[in-house]
Design a protein around this nucleic acid. Structure first.
Lengths: 336, 336
DNA sequence: GTGAAAGCGCTAACAG
DNA sequence: CTGTTAGCGCTTTCAC
């Protein structure tokens, strides 16, 4: 691979002139340099540029699970927002693994100008280190609890769960179960607490056996749903804290031959691509996923372009309950 | 951020000794260096290392659409395979955009040790340039037609489509439609040609109005399906060339109130996460997606570790027709 | 406008 | 085993 010295030599100028040409400045031997670059197939080394300038013209995005359609949509929103600014998006997938997440943070912090991340756990410390080091950081969907104040974009998890519970209670349900996500993560904790609060708000005592702690993965939805159905006193409705666990719960229910919503009402959090085509169509708490990513990207870009200090921003986006076919009245003969 | 000089100074040694310590070699002042690193919070600059060594300890993966579950699974397989080798995976999403793909290739080629990519089009030239420059490259799912011979991992698209057509013909269908993917891409072209060949193999003349060219996106599945249903002579079955377009086709059919498989049989290519929970469960050509990624990763890692020339490998993985509920006999009264 | 030269942070060859 | 030094490829003073 040709370097800037080769080009300078071929064009009969100094490397400084080549740099100037590259930067779009006017130089006398423009044509010669252009030809030399062309003939040698020269491409400036991004690594050398980064070392020299400390900038990378790219941002990093770290998500816990890229195969979750929600995070895929988030990434879409980020890319859409960031592209016009000439920044590359480099994606890291921690695969729900704390060690891998840490490695990615360290790697991308050094190779990008800023980071958008959904940390695995609120106890994560790495992001705080980054922020302290002055590396631009925006939390999206999740945040950490300790450390400095950081830009973040969340959705109104509490309102979403409350709407779901209100809807079920309105249909006459009282034995409502929940399958929570990781309670050490922001959405897991908030949705879990919101469920308990909403039930209390309706004056309903929650049977502890109906409160299950999952981990956001499909398998945990499957297992907990099967468990719930094995209970002597079954629930008449269930609120599942994310899309993947909802999918798992539906698989379990399908295998058990449970009729939804006749025997059990199901509400998921986060829409699924084919939610309307399921049998029955799934009632879910839906949120503006692409927009969530875009909002986070806007905060980061703003911070990258700012000369002076930018105050920390906290954005909360609204959610919406989409009532479809998977929720219905309490089955007859159930203990009301 | 502290650099190696700061550490050397603090420990009272030369930078060379710090480097040696970092590389795990035995040095006399080990303890002093350890403490200096600890106290200064020193982290070696990856960028400087890359510039010096020309290696990056990471690989790049470029896919056309990360929100397609197939590519998400592919990435999973790659990460699983590559992690034990201490390599980071950096993901690029071209979002079906040729310009963006080119930018990603150029960027990642300079910042990674090797690339796994599913090129948008068989006419793409960038990958060839890379390969000529000696940058390790593996094609997965798709390849380019010109340029040097490159490692690749594909699936047996032809056999998959043939099985789908055989299955439908076995059920008595002859008016079989297809919605193809981008025919300038490997899987698009192969599945398209395989469809025509399989039909010819059964001695069936294909009505040209039943052959639609989509672009692998959901919307194109929706549009083409709606178009097909508007035809005076409707098909009795349809083979859709990928998962997203199948989802779109199902949405269109749902909106039109078409009963599957009573009025129309549907076969998709690529399984969908919830395919078994759809109404009816979807018949698909399924393939080992995670394994496809892993196979590509193995080829790349092998090439990265090899001292000498490694002959090019071409891997083709088998596919499997999963017959579920969306295919059935020809509707009565249809022109056989 | 232009070129010489220093330096971003690291590693490796070399001499001790 | 250790330190000195050159150099990866680029940008940016600085003096002309």
């Amino acid at each position: 691979m040709a370097n800037i010295q080769d080009v300078a030599k071929a064009a009969g100028v100094s490397t400084a002139s080549v740099t100037r040409y590259l930067a779009g400045q006017r130089i006398r031997s423009e044509e010669a340099v252009r030809r030399a670059i062309e003939e040698l197939g020269y491409r400036p080394s991004l690594v050398a540029r980064s070392l020299k300038s400390g900038r990378h013209q790219s941002i990093g995005v770290i998500v816990p699970d890229i195969s979750n359609p929600f995070f895929a949509a988030l990434v879409k929103g980020i890319e859409r927002e960031v592209r016009p600014h000439g920044l590359q998006v480099i994606l890291g997938n921690s695969d729900e693994d704390a060690e891998r997440e840490e490695a990615l943070v360290r790697e991308l912090a050094q190779r990008t100008d800023g980071l958008i991340m959904a940390p695995l756990s609120e106890n994560d410390e790495i992001p705080d280190l980054l922020a302290q080091a002055g590396h631009p950081l925006v939390f999206v969907d999740r945040e950490t609890s300790s450390g400095p104040d950081v830009d973040r974009v969340l959705v109104d998890n509490t309102a979403g769960i409350r709407q779901a519970v209100d809807h079920l209670v309105g249909l006459g349900h009282t034995r409502i179960a929940t399958i929570s996500g990781r309670v050490d993560s922001t959405p897991g904790r908030m949705r879990h607490e919101a469920f308990l609060a909403a039930m209390a708000g309706h004056g309903i005592d929650v049977d502890p056996t109906l409160v299950r702690r999952g981990d956001f993965r499909e398998e945990s939805g499957r297992l907990h749903m099967a468990d719930l159905w094995r209970l002597p006193q079954r629930p008449t409705a269930v609120v599942v804290a994310n899309n993947l666990m909802t999918a798992g719960a539906l698989v379990a229910l399908g295998a058990l031959g449970v009729r939804v919503p006749d025997e059990l009402s199901v509400v998921g959090f986060d829409d699924l691509p084919l939610a309307t085509l399921l049998d029955p169509p799934l009632t879910v708490v839906s949120r503006p996923d692409v927009e969530e990513g875009a909002a986070a990207a806007r905060l980061l870009v703003e911070r990258l372009h700012a000369d002076e200090h930018v105050p920390t921003a906290h954005v909360t986006l609204p959610v919406e309950l989409l009532v479809r076919g998977s929720t219905g009245p309490v089955p007859k003969g159930s203990p009301a």
